[in-house]
Design a binder for these strands. Sequence first.
DNA 1: TATTGTTATACTCTATAACTATA
DNA 2: TATAGTTATAGAGTATAACAATA
Lengths: 150, 150
Amino acid sequence: MNAAAEDEPRPDLAAMIVPLGRALMADEQPVLDAHGLSMWGYVVLSALGETPVRTQAALAAAINADKTRIITVLDDLESRDLLVRRPDPKDRRARLLSLTPEGRRLRDSVRDEIQRREESWLGRLADADRESFLRSLRTLSDAARRSPEP
Amino acid sequence: MNAAAEDEPRPDLAAMIVPLGRALMADEQPVLDAHGLSMWGYVVLSALGETPVRTQAALAAAINADKTRIITVLDDLESRDLLVRRPDPKDRRARLLSLTPEGRRLRDSVRDEIQRREESWLGRLADADRESFLRSLRTLSDAARRSPEP
DNA sequence: TATTGTTATACTCTATAACTATA
DNA sequence: TATAGTTATAGAGTATAACAATA
């Protein structure tokens, strides 16, 4: 039994979640390195897979990134034939973004490796907690996406 | 029911956790601002409260920060009489760190406000999930602290 | 020589503002 | 004029290396 257990306040949520996020990212970095992908590169590939995106600004918004920040990422991915940018015929200012088959393959295999590593993290949880944890995480993550970040 | 639910892979853990951490921090920033505290300042006050720390290096390690990074933070907190640094008589290289009563008071009131805000996040969870979520989060957070970050 | 705290410097990430091309 | 994309610049945050004091 803990000596001062009664006085111990619970740790702040952020104080647990932020370092956990960092540790997860650090754990995934070797996978990305092995495929020559940056974190943002992978995020972009993932976001394009789920929903076809019609403008770079929309893509940036979807992944909570600055629109200027993803440009070099897109340049790199395009130069490696993982995605294509072509002007929208209806509005030639906009760029239609789509994954190439190769981009899709890369995204899938990286995601598989990453999620396999994540499984080993989830393996630390009690079986009864695991599903509940993922459900809660989805709920909070959705709430976070909706919360207005100035 | 979701159209393509069967094909939909679960989002990466990191892709949910990292933005959630950012949103929590953004949500807490106004509280810190109101008390003139930086995020690291608050982290230091919190860490000092829980366990008395005998060296700055130990403190830095405890909060997963670079030892050089907390120095200006300590300077600021000390100048505001929230903590004191005094040379350890047994090893005058080391600085014994302790909160002043004022530092303790500030830490407590900021923590109360922050945790009150966090409660409104947790309020989104199903009652049955809440306890499980916090337990799982503690488990993973502990694991993250142990994981060796190069 | 090794360690604690510190300072100075460099590097990475991110945001802001200005430019182009289309509309 | 307004918007999509782009480029250039500046700022914050972080890490690396070098230093002084003490052991």
